[in-house]
Write a protein that binds this DNA or RNA. Structure first.
Lengths: 348, 348
DNA sequence: ATGAAAGCGCTAACAG
DNA sequence: CTGTTAGCGCTTTCAT
């Protein structure tokens, strides 16, 4: 039976209910002997503290909400979640996901704010939340931590990476290898106007511009759902000069492309140096040079940050930017090793 | 302020707290006019029902626990979670993950059963739980649903796929294409003795055996972390005859292998037909023939099942097996199109 | 249809 | 160190 309450345990152990309660919540306030008695009785009766009842008294729910966009939780989202949980769960917090998807759903959520008084902590992960919404969110009076969101406005804390700096790592690697004609492939921003895509694109352009020698850049747009390889080959035709290197917005475009290139005998890095972004699934096994970010760590850092707020010792700097790192593997090579791209692009 | 309670709303609306409560929990028991008043006041004061307080009275926590192994939540796990949430969240349930990892953690969890009286629903997803544990779990007296677990013992319901049947689909496809020498590549079971790997392996063997003509089979073992391609090539050397087709335990071994094969100019399906399992990330974009399962659906079905139990209308058949499907793409071809494997395998 | 009142199971003063 | 007591915010009979 799962019906034992503090009263039952108290009776069984021959103590008062407060002693039972204390044995669980602040063991140091109970003599070892008494506690032992209590614990024994509790065990025998399969007693467990009911969180919901405790919440009522303490005002803490030990719940956290993770707000995400309604896209399928991808590589990034799942890892963020895990990182968060890795910190929060041991601290006694349960995290649930609140998908804030289409704008109707979103409107409803922010109007009702169903999490008000039901969570102690709110995390907002990389979705396009307006500042009006954040400010409304802040009315629930619990710490709000952003994970990979653009602005820190009305956020108690945030953890993010510097996308522009990341792509700069990629560009500089290519420039150092001697490449002077570099393309950037990205998903058409009209459909997914996530700021981090924008930052990567701008970071790419900026990094090329800053190089002392002239660097030629080409932009390749991808419609969502469109075949990466076909788009690449098609848009190559209309370029006046062919790039020797290609930066991709993220691994999820680089990997299928790399795959098709291999399949159609276009060698990488022989014909083209290729860089991804994320260091996500398969990047390592496949040998893709890419920019590494660690979503698990983003989540974990966000969790720790949040816990600090709860301790009433507000962290000195609650706005964290994590470093990215370039993982140099087998898809980039010096320009000397690269045959001119136009040798093959036209008749493929 | 987030402090409005039923009392505040009652005062504001000029009604009793019971009326406020009823307006939210059973609106039909309140006259439309009164309800309107209540709702207006509630809105004005940003009132939201506090779940924890409600739980205390109703005995329902509106929480669910998803027990998983401690491996990183992968493609499968994340999708199961999402599917579960897609049903449970709209029904008012919050799901949190309880990683039951190393055996110490596991022991502690099952000894303490910290979720007792704290969740209304328990899901157990694909990890190796012993029947003793399941039975202990069932002592908490809430519906327990298995997702992709082997035995239904002590489980109120379960949702799974038939792994053996799935791999059979793959084998029969290859046999129909004329292949009579088929290899199976799997991760060494000593490290991950998940039953579904075992079922796939056995299903493979069984399917080959059942074919009216003699079929030669080869088993290729993979140590976790070991390079797939190197293992493949190495073990090929010691085979007396070379397979023309290869079934992989799952896409996560097929994809890197396919990639390396392409890179090293070993054509698929020209030299070898290749089949994966899962239809996971990139399988589609890359054109991998594979067996499709839908973890999202597994989760969703599990969620619906659980909800039925809560309605006190136990579903007639709570043990569901979902179908798998073969996705025929570009990595399999008739035997006539396949050059003998030994033409290239030895000098690569 | 509405209100009064009694807890749900726990924690946290406050006493002793 | 331990016990008594008063709620936390809600739901739910039971009256009216």
């Amino acid at each position: 039976m799962s019906k034992a309450s503090v009263y039952d345990v108290a009776r069984e152990a021959g103590v008062s209910i407060s002693t039972v309660s204390r044995s669980f919540t602040s063991p140091e306030k109970v003599s070892a002997k008494t506690r032992a008695k209590v614990m024994k009785a509790a065990e025998a009766m399969n007693f467990t503290v009911t969180h919901t009842a405790a919440s009522l008294k303490t005002g803490r729910t030990f719940r956290a909400a993770l707000l995400v966009g309604n896209e399928r939780l991808d590589w990034f989202g799942s890892l963020v979640r895990e990182g968060l949980d890795s910190i929060l769960h041991p601290a006694g917090y349960d995290t649930s996901i609140y998908p804030i998807g289409d704008s109707e759903e979103q409107e409803h959520f922010f109007a009702e704010l169903p999490i008000r008084r039901n969570v102690d902590l709110v995390f907002v992960s990389s979705f396009d939340i307006t500042s009006k919404e954040t400010s409304r969110l802040s009315s629930i009076n619990v710490p709000i931590i952003g994970i990979n969101v653009e602005s820190n406005h009305d956020l108690d804390g945030s953890v993010k990476i510097d996308d522009a700096k990341g792509i700069q790592l990629a560009v500089n690697h290519l420039l150092t290898l001697g490449h002077r004609n570099i393309a950037y492939m990205h998903i058409s921003p009209k459909s997914s106007l996530h700021f981090s895509s924008l930052n990567r694109l701008q970071g790419f352009l900026e990094a090329c511009r800053q190089w002392p020698e002239p660097v030629k850049t080409e932009l390749i747009k991808l419609q969502p759902g469109q075949d990466v390889f076909s788009s690449f080959i098609s848009q190559l035709q209309s370029m006046e000069s062919r790039p020797t290197a290609l930066c991709c917005q993220d691994d999820s475009v680089a990997i299928p492309l790399l795959f098709k290139l291999n399949r159609f005998r276009l060698t990488v890095p022989g014909n083209l140096s290729l860089v991804g972004f994320d260091d996500s699934t398969y990047a390592d096994k496949i040998g893709l040079t890419t920019i590494r970010q660690d979503p698990f760590d983003l989540g974990a850092k966000a969790g720790s940050l949040a816990l600090e707020f709860l301790k009433k010792t507000p962290p000195k700097n609650p706005y964290i930017t994590l470093d990215t790192q370039i993982m140099i593997r087998n898809t980039t090579a010096p320009i000397e090793d690269t045959r001119p791209l136009d040798k093959w692009a036209c008749n493929s």
